[in-house]
Amino acid sequence: MTIRQPTHTPYDGSSKLFTIGLKPLEIERWIEVDEFLLPHLAEKQRLYADIPEKVFVEEADTRDAQSEVLALLSPHLIAKHPRSHCGTGSDVEVIGLATATDRLPPTLRNAPLARASLLVQEDLILMRRDERGWRLAAGSLCFPSSWSLQEKFGKPLQEIHAPVPGFGPGTRPAELINRMFDGLQGQTVERFNWSIQAGDALYHPLSNIQRIDRATNRPTRFADGDINAHAFMRVERQTLRKLPVSSDILFTIRIHLDPLKVLDAHPDRATLAASFVEQLLALDQQQLDYKGLTADRDRLVAFLNGIAGSA
């Protein structure tokens, strides 16, 4: 059986944790489509049906900007992903599925951002500028990485990032991020973030700090201790693109999940595992707690050292 290798490996040292790391992105690579498109969209549809208030928010005056998102996505998907998407103009569909509108609960069928979200695997967040900075004005977040859309709705970036070590209000990184958002014009940029989670759940809203190991009283991901069976690498590919009419910024988040153990079959497993270990060991206590890795780091390091040693 062929083992699927990770699409992105930012833990190779190219995207270090707790750094901004924005890089230019060719527009041709803006949206990613892979073999998980249909199951990911099915999971989004399930979440919309079960907990719509937790996965979609919008300010009342964002519908025009939401329509901009749909208008940008539609021709891009038709042109760049003709095997999975078809249509003309802004009328685009996923091949083999009902229209996005038909797959939404009635209360969201007129929300263009919700419709757009059922065309792609990415989550879609609209950021809007006011006197406080860039705030979360609307969003479809079906696959959160340990944060709550309802909790962050309406807040500016510095408050959204307040729990992140070194990125809270008044810090240099917080100021830099706001300046980068202000300076974003026609270009599209991307960055990567990554973490390790227990299990392969895409919907992952619970804060790491809420996962406490009873023995250490520290955040944990692997209460049962079975790294080989349950550890998954969660990679977030994030992009930023300013909308041409509203000047709002579209923030996309694409989640990639791979079992940690697949690294053992990677042709560069020794290099990847060694870099992974180096970055885990470089995290300080506050960063480990934020990532939920304090109680598990030593076990993860030992597991990865075993992969590196088998090369």
Rank of each mutant, 00 (worst) to 15 (best):
T7H: 10
T9G: 05
G13N: 07
K16R: 15
T19N: 13
W30I: 04
F36T: 13
F36N: 15
L37I: 07
L37T: 09
H40S: 15
H40Q: 15
L41W: 02
A42R: 15
L47S: 04
K54R: 14
V55P: 07
D61K: 13
T62W: 03
A65D: 02
Q66C: 05
E68V: 00
E68S: 04
H76D: 04
H76E: 02
I78G: 03
H81N: 11
P82Y: 06
R83D: 15
C86Y: 02
C86E: 14
D91R: 11
G96Q: 05
A100H: 04
T101C: 06
D102N: 14
R103I: 07
T107R: 12
R109P: 11
N110G: 15
L118I: 09
L124F: 03
G133T: 13
G133E: 04
A138Q: 00
S140R: 04
L141E: 02
L141P: 05
S145H: 01
Q150P: 01
Q150F: 00
F153W: 07
Q158L: 11
Q158T: 12
I160K: 09
H161C: 09
H161Y: 13
A162N: 08
V164E: 11
P165D: 08
P165W: 06
G170R: 07
G183C: 04
Q187M: 13
T188D: 06
E190D: 08
F192Q: 10
N193C: 09
W194L: 12
W194T: 05
S195F: 02
Q197E: 07
G199S: 03
G199N: 07
A201C: 09
A201G: 04
L202A: 02
H204I: 00
P205G: 12
L206R: 10
S207P: 13
D213N: 15
P219N: 07
F222I: 04
G225A: 11
G225M: 01
H230L: 10
A231Y: 03
M233V: 14
M233D: 00
R237P: 09
Q238S: 07
R241E: 04
R241C: 03
K242G: 01
P244I: 02
S246C: 02
D248F: 08
L250H: 01
I253P: 01
I255E: 01
H256S: 15
P259V: 13
P259M: 13
P259H: 11
L260Y: 02
L260F: 10
V262M: 11
L263A: 09
T271A: 14
L272K: 03
A274R: 15
V277H: 03
E278R: 10
Q279W: 05
L280A: 03
L281W: 01
L281R: 15
A282E: 10
L283S: 06
Q285I: 08
Q285A: 14
Q287T: 03
Y290G: 05
Y290P: 01
V301T: 03
V301W: 10
A302D: 14
A302Q: 13
L304Q: 10
N305P: 01
I307E: 13
I307W: 12
S310D: 11
A311T: 10
A311V: 07
